[in-house]
Amino acid sequence: MLFLVGFMASGKTTVGSQLASTLDRGFCDLDCKFEDMTQITIPTFFEKFGEKAFRDKESEILCDVINECSKKVFATGGGCVVREKNRVLLDGQHVIYLKVPFDVIYERLTTKNKRIRPLANTTSKEELHSLYEERQKWYNSVSTHCIECEDLNSNEIVRLILKELSH
């Protein structure tokens, strides 16, 4: 199993899909799995049930996929690392942190036609930056490898990940 972590809009889904294809493995975006299982979009789930209920279900899904012991590449949600339970579940797994500077993240989040993210749509730039900074310690604590993604395209990031995994 290989897990990609990082802040929202860091490219986990794009990179994860390419990485899985390169490694000839399956790919699973845990946010998509969440929506498939609940039959509701994440923004709607947040609106109806709140963040705590979302994090509860996210933890349940993470636990399920880890117990499957498949050889897939998984893209986690940006806040997956917030819960200690999830950090414990990720301990011992191959975890790649896609580290993207906040300014790049913010630009991606504010670009039109991007996926709706509940936390990004309800907080100011300053609050998002604070959230970004707060999560850095958790991304670093769970990751076995950190990839600095500034100014890199997804092909270059995949190549760096493969290089890291070969060591």
Rank of each mutant, 00 (worst) to 15 (best):
L2M: 09
F3P: 02
L4Q: 09
V5C: 02
G6I: 07
M8G: 04
A9D: 03
G11I: 03
K12A: 13
V15P: 00
G16H: 03
S17F: 13
Q18Y: 11
L23A: 10
D24N: 14
R25S: 08
G26Y: 10
D29K: 06
E35T: 03
E35N: 01
M37L: 14
Q39S: 12
K48W: 08
G50M: 12
K52F: 02
A53K: 15
F54D: 04
E60F: 14
E60R: 10
I61N: 03
V65N: 07
N67H: 12
N67Q: 11
N67G: 10
E68C: 13
C69T: 06
F74Q: 01
A75E: 13
C80K: 02
V82G: 07
R83G: 11
R83N: 14
L90K: 01
G92K: 03
G92V: 04
L98E: 09
L98I: 08
V100H: 10
V100D: 09
P101H: 02
F102Q: 01
D103W: 10
I105Y: 02
T110L: 09
T110W: 07
K114M: 14
K114E: 14
I116C: 12
P118G: 08
N121D: 13
S124R: 03
E127Q: 05
E127N: 02
L128A: 00
S130H: 01
S130C: 01
L131S: 04
E133H: 06
Q136I: 10
W138V: 02
Y139A: 03
N140H: 10
H145F: 08
I147C: 06
I147F: 06
D151S: 06
N153Q: 07
N155D: 15
I157T: 14
L165T: 02
S166T: 15
